[in-house]
């Protein structure tokens, strides 16, 4: 039992990196999702084509290989990233691509009648988006966005493959020195689970905060 306490500082330092990776990637993913999700809805090819490319490329290829590519291949083109930056960037772009589809779906789910009501009241196109459509879409995109955040948290484990010592990496190191696989990986799982509970709790709070009376 005391052994477990001696592991904790090591695991917790991994947790710190995992959380920083998650937060950093989320800070990239959210604006990417919003910008490319809206661009995807445009009827203008110069907007929706780049957006479709971005979404399809990042959704359509393995995140692990993307990570290897950013970490090992980009330096050949003169752009060297440390493991943490590569991790934040790849995870952020990856979740951003899925997020763009969430944004697109939520905006498309707002009924056409809402646009017509706005037009009948002489709102400009931009006002219609910012005042009428996006606030409604935002409420609809929160639950799937929460899922993506948990997905993001879990996929930070991938970054251990490019030697970043986040939670999973620390777990592996401890296992190598103690050979207590069961205890160590059970604790590691538990920590991931607690972190994801934090995310779903926060998202649920946010949902309650922004949701309007539904009768």
């Amino acid at each position: 039992m005391t052994e477990i306490f001696s592991w904790l500082p090591i695991l917790l330092s991994g947790v710190k990196t995992t959380v920083l990776l998650t937060v950093g990637a989320a800070l990239i993913a959210c604006p990417m999702a919003l910008i490319f999700g809206l661009a995807r809805l445009s009827s203008h090819p110069s907007l929706y084509l780049p957006s479709a490319c971005y979404i399809e490329i990042f959704r359509g290829t393995s995140a692990l290989v993307q990570l290897f590519w950013f970490y090992y291949v980009l330096p050949h083109f003169g752009w060297k990233l440390d493991a943490f930056s590569a991790g934040v960037l790849v995870l952020g772009l990856n979740i951003g691509a899925y997020g763009a589809e969430v944004v697109r779906g939520a905006v498309q789910a707002v009924p056409r009648e809402q646009y017509e009501a706005a037009q009948a009241l002489s709102f400009s196109r931009q006002q219609t988006m910012t005042r009428i459509i996006l606030p409604q879409a935002f409420v609809a995109m929160l639950p799937p966005a929460g899922n993506l955040m948990i997905e993001l948290l879990k996929s930070t484990a991938l970054v251990s493959m490019i030697t970043l010592s986040e939670l999973t990496f620390k777990g592996q190191i401890l296992r190598a020195s103690t050979l207590k696989s069961t205890e160590i990986f059970t604790i590691t799982l538990l920590i991931y689970f607690l972190l994801s509970l934090c995310i779903s709790g926060a998202v649920r709070k946010l949902e309650r905060y922004v949701s309007y009376a539904k009768g």
């Binding site: 809402q114 002489s122 009428i132």
Partner: peptide
């Protein structure tokens, strides 16, 4: 837009802004 501002409409399905 000038013409649109002179006209108002009420729809069968209300179309209030729910938020």
């Amino acid at each position: 837009s000038r013409i649109r501002a002179k006209v108002g409409m009420v729809f069968q399905s209300f179309n209030l802004f729910p938020h």
